[in-house]
Design a protein around this nucleic acid. Sequence first.
DNA 1: CTAGGGTTAG
Length: 667
Amino acid sequence: MKIPSPNSLQLLTVSFQIHKNCFSTTAAAATNTNLITWFNKYFDKTDVYSWNSLIAELARGGDSYESLRAFASMRKLDIKPNRSTLPCAVKSCSALFDLNSGKQAHQQAFVFGFESDLFVSSALIDMYSKCGKLSDARILFDEIPQKNIVTWTSLITGYVQNDNAHEALLVFKEFFIEKSEGNGEEVETFVDSVAMVSVLSACSRVSNKEVSESVHGVAIKLGLDKVVAVENTLLDAYAKCGEVSLSRRVFNEMAEKDVVSWNSMIAVYAQNGLSMDAFEVFYWMLKDGGGKYNAITLSTLLLACANEGALRVGMCLHDQVIKMGFANNVIMCTSIIDMYCKCGQAEMARNAFDGMKEKNVRSWTAMIAGYGVHGFAREALDVFYQMIWAGVKPNYVTFISVLAACSHAGFLDEGRRWFNAMSNEYNVEPGIEHYGCMVDLLGRAGYLNEAYNLIRSMKVRHDFVLWGSLLAACRIHKNVELGEISAQELFKLEPSNSGYYVLLANIYADAGRWKDVERMRILMKDRGLVKPPGFSLVELNGRVHVFLVGDKEHPQHEKIYKYLEELSVKLQELGYVPNSASVLHDVDEEEKEMIVRVHSEKLAVGFGVMNSVPGSTIHVIKNLRVCGDCHTVIKLISKIVSREIVVRDAKRFHHFKDGLCSCGDYW
DNA sequence: CTAGGGTTAG
């Protein structure tokens, strides 16, 4: 689980008084009642049209299972299906991912001579590709002599949904060229908005700006660029290749926006860490969008809260989820678990998790990952064992979470065991992330050479995560030689990430190699790199307070400095000596000490202690990793003031209590 | 009485 970096330097003060603005969940019943009335009055079991209506109506209403049952009953009575019967029946098979019924329907189509009917064959192509049988879909497609746009679209969508967007685009290109060669007009009548959406969804997965732009051009030329669904997919396609501002432009230029448009824009912002923008669009949606939002809206907003660590808003959203009747929605609950974990509330996450009626792999994984970043490896592994006991098959991400949990707590033996078991017993091949966890785990335990050899022996390609983990381990275990090797790799992989230069500089500083420290400083300067400013957030009474290094903006800053001065006397009584090694040595000793003393996390903790009820837990969120000196100080503060202090940094959670930290001083 | 599409979680 990656810990997001909070982005909001503004105060996130959100009041949530919008309970009336939501989609009614009780409106659906009416259509079913109508169907039953109709059924009792007019249904003639000997009439194929009656059956068709029934099958079609059930399929439209989303009850594919009943639709298929109706088809089976009809066949039992020996009523011959006509050309309208089969497409609906096949569609229901696709919706249920029921390959066997699909094959039977295919057989029926063959028997009754509808195999080459375009409606039937399109539905069959869709059915085979949704059931993962893309090659069968392709065979069917190739056998159709006169294809129409729906046939082509079915195949294109098939490729997209089977993770081959590249091939999907090639199919579209083939179609486009074929049609353009005859005469240009034919293409215009041939491509419709559904096809356009399908092609654009392929673009969004390929995530290449030029490709998306050229398909956008095609859409404009064909006059399809003002169709809402096309615009929505286009918005997504631009976002997926990192062009958030182009997404916003598409969004702004839309004449009409539907709930998908709003949700997509909110999701784009939330996924890119622009949480405030996500909320701004949401408020705009409430005002101008008719105020109708749904489960997906809430799910994306929960992600924004998770990014910011905005617990209060997250709890309001949770409340709203319950009020709107989404509490049993698996995706929704998983978002809630994720939000609570990233807001430092592992217990609340666990409550939400235990209350779930049904869980899927992702829900289990979210809980395991959540416990992991908190350093609660025992709990994470217990959930993992329960998951296996429940018969849920762990996937690639589950094993990342399990190994990450082990690495955050230093569970070397269990980490090794699961690293081996994942491929041997569960058929999941380790990828870069799993290796990353193992490097972390070995590095933490001091097996630096073993970690180094593991990286060197890897079959998968190298990555900054691996060398980054090793570099961090070298810092802790003061290994200059391997630290230099790791840093060299990292400079090649990510030359503009200032963090690596700072880490290596700190390793040199610890070894007293000041010339090398100076060399790093000059190197950073030459490459125009600056250390991003650190800031910390504390949420208090629904307001988020932001502290920068040496902050003088916060209304209480003078009081906080005074309080920290008082604390520092007590700290020194406990034997604390300021350690400024975490500061890049570009300032003289005295100034360094000053900077360390006013690191944002110290200010945030001081503020939290001063302004909250004695005995209550303090939650702080930091955008960078917590510095060594602050870590020591916060440990001692937790003892002096008898408070539990929870700090989320860029990598994990630290639970400070009674002078100790849950990370075991390794992070 | 008939086919194909867009947004969400690790």
